[in-house]
């Protein structure tokens, strides 16, 4: 089986600070990759490179065998190409970043609606009629409601983000990312901003997504969850992959002393 995602030699510096120093990994369709590592090891930066929020200085990213990012690959990507390519990925932020002025349903439908309407214009060479528009928005809305049901928030669709708990906000953010049907959904510490009693409901949603065979990359400090949900684990330290393997290998029988030190520290904390 060909991997859905192939990351080759990603390097990223901020000024003189080399934060990612050659990251290589692959991910199979339907697998969950959990990335662990201490603060400052470059986990967020890696996710941001995958989602085109940062531009890697070196390396390539391929999805489904197609190169979607190549650093210094001669010509610069246009904004439209970047937008197209980044839709292979979804990103759920630590701090949710919901749009406060829109209700829950609108938070989810806003982006797909604009994308579909733009696509209609591009394909048909004309603006959508009112009827076309209604058909498109109705369809997106129905899909959004399904997603809200899936994350257990069907009754909250008219609420505004300020009326939600952290756990609910994060579940809306997950539904919002799912609405664009990304090939690979990334989570950057999705529960770090939550009270401990609320992390469970978010982790449950991620487990359910795994059962739907979704390909995901999860950065987390929740070691028990990581061990349970991961098909593959990467431990990052100082901008390199110090160790990778199955959860049994990395958690059960870590080879690198750094991994062992990190895991024993986490165990004491957790």
């Amino acid at each position: 089986m060909n991997p859905i995602l192939e990351v080759k030699n990603i390097r990223k510096s901020f000024g003189n600070n080399e934060v990612l120093r050659g990251i290589n990994f692959t991910l199979n369709q339907g697998d969950v990759l959990v990335i662990i590592g201490s603060s400052g090891s470059g986990k967020t930066t890696l996710l941001r490179c995958l989602n085109f929020l940062e531009e890697a200085n070196e390396g390539t990213i391929s999805v489904g065998g197609k190169v979607i990012y190549q650093a210094g690959g001669g010509k610069k990507m246009t904004d439209a190409e970047i937008r197209q390519n980044r839709l292979h990925f979804g990103l759920v932020f630590q701090s949710f970043n919901l749009f406060p002025q829109y209700n829950v349903l609108r938070n989810i439908t806003l982006a797909p609606e604009m994308l579909e309407l733009d696509k209609f214009k591009a394909e048909k060479g004309k603006k959508p009629s009112l009827a076309d528009k209604k058909r498109i928005t109705d369809e997106i809305e129905m899909h959004a409601k399904d997603l809200l049901t899936k994350v257990g928030l069907a009754d909250k669709m008219d609420s505004y983000p300020f009326q939600l708990s952290g756990g609910q906000s994060q579940r809306v953010a997950i539904a919002r990312a799912l609405a664009l049907a990304p090939d690979i959904l990334c989570f950057d510490e999705p529960t770090s901003a939550l009270d401990p009693e609320l992390t469970g409901e978010v982790l449950k949603v991620i487990r359910e997504l795994k059962n739907d065979n979704r390909t995901m990359i999860v950065v987390t400090h929740e070691m028990e969850f990581a061990r349970g949900v991961a098909d593959k684990v990467i431990y990052m330290a100082d901008g390199v992959i110090e160790e990778q393997g199955t959860p049994e290998e990395v958690f059960g029988n870590p080879q690198s002393p750094k991994t062992r030190a990190f895991l024993s520290k986490s165990a004491i904390k957790g």
């Binding site: 904004d79 937008r83 197209q84 970043n97 604009m114």
Partner: peptide, 18 residues
């Protein structure tokens, strides 16, 4: 306006003007 608002829009495939 927090940077996260722009970034959320970006990862959702919106254009700068959107």
């Amino acid at each position: 306006i927090p940077k996260g608002q722009y970034e959320a829009g970006q990862v959702l495939g919106m254009t700068k003007s959107q």
